[in-house]
Amino acid sequence: MGYSEKVMEHFMHPRNVGRIENADGVGRAGNPICGDIMAIYIKVKDDVITDIKFETFGCGAAIATSSMVTELVKGKTIEEALKITNRTVANALDGLPPIKMHCSLLAEDGVKAAIGDYKKKQELKNKVKL
């Protein structure tokens, strides 16, 4: 397939696999027709993503990019996390084969969806407080 060593390393030993019970935000990305599906769970404290986990159904690149994005996001503020693009993820993995670049979009979309979910929940909470 022509994966870099780093991709294979993350694929074989993915970081932050699993789910977080009572997560502050849950995001989904991908499409079962295309064969890549990802779920991202985040814990947020004082605007910082303190914990992150993922579950992914997909090829080697999908699993490796999921793993890498959790490493990149962990400990970052929401604002910083939103700046992470698919290119950032692909570069951190020493690149992806051209036909696999769409897999890195999955990672970016997943994080953005989880942050979106977190923000929505915060708004609801604030409304309740008012």
Binding site: M12, G58, G60, A62
Partner: peptide, 14 residues
């Protein structure tokens, strides 16, 4: 079910 083919193939290849 619940898993994707290429990820199985890569593991088998190893």
């Amino acid at each position: 079910k619940y898993v994707e083919g290429e990820s199985m193939l890569l593991n088998l290849d190893l």
